[in-house]
Design a protein around this nucleic acid. Structure first.
Lengths: 143, 143
DNA sequence: GATTATTAGTCCTAATTAGAACTAAGTGAG
DNA sequence: CTCACTTAGTTCTAATTAGGACTAATAATC
């Protein structure tokens, strides 16, 4: 049971980050998943739902609703995929692009403050330790 | 922007853990928050919603619904609080206690496997690095 | 080439989520 | 004591969440 403090700390870190990030995103009239989608589409060629879901870690059933709301807000559009009629290409509209250009840098600056306390070396070390743990968890999950 | 890999890794680690943990909890006919509540009440004297929410990091509006469902399942009961008529004491029923005794150790064993790859020292280091980061984030959030 | 299997996305359901409004009950200042 | 303030929980709403059923289209196999 010596792993409990670590587990607890992972959960609390994640939630602390969320509690810090979410109000700022809300002040831009977006929800966190909506911002995530806009940020992922920004400065990228249009992509399929599948690809968007893989990058944002949002499952397909959830993604449909998020895209519906962004479409109503006029920020994204669904276009037919020439190469594969099963799928679509999701792209930012001009309005969505403008939102991206305004909100993305602002939010990155907001987040950067939270990480300023760590040295670059600490960030590298922490990242690689978490990665090792994650990969060992993922290995088990596929069994 | 050097913090992005770390941020990404925190999110992915958290989700990897969730993806590993959730199916096992579901196999015991509970949802993750329901299990969280049972585990928090287990081997503890009855506690108020407030206290339960603080420990599980579940907000009060959410907690009401989770407790409703656990009450319907006969696992918890809400009892009047003698000392303060505004609040209640939440307690495991006999059935809930039995579920706790069966599912808690089983799930701990399941989780332990995921952390076996890390040495005790690595766990301590990782925990303290995350804690430092979290505390610096929390300091900003209170502004 | 026909059949089978896989893939992409939508729709549906049950549960969670945060936050705000609301009620009831305790606390504190005068 | 009385009025303002705080606290505990419920209720409500809009959005997310995962997962399964479903449709349409593509790929794979024989």
């Amino acid at each position: 049971m010596e792993f409990l403090p670590l587990l607890r700390e992972i959960v609390k870190s994640y939630q602390a980050f969320d509690n810090y990030s979410a109000p700022h995103i809300k002040s831009m009239d977006l929800t966190p998943p909506q911002f995530d989608v806009i940020a992922t589409l920004g400065n990228q060629p249009p992509m399929t739902c599948k690809s968007l879901g893989d990058k944002t870690l949002i499952t397909k059933g959830t993604l449909t609703g998020i895209l519906d709301r962004l479409e109503i807000k006029g920020m994204i559009e669904r276009k037919a995929n020439e190469e594969d009629a099963r799928s679509q290409k999701i792209a930012l509209t001009t309005a969505g692009q403008a939102i991206f250009e305004h909100t993305f840098p602002t939010h990155m600056q907001h987040l950067e403050k939270a990480f300023k306390q760590l040295s670059p070396q600490q960030m590298v070390d922490l990242t690689s330790a978490l990665k090792q743990l994650r990969e060992s968890i993922e290995k088990l999950a596929t069994h």
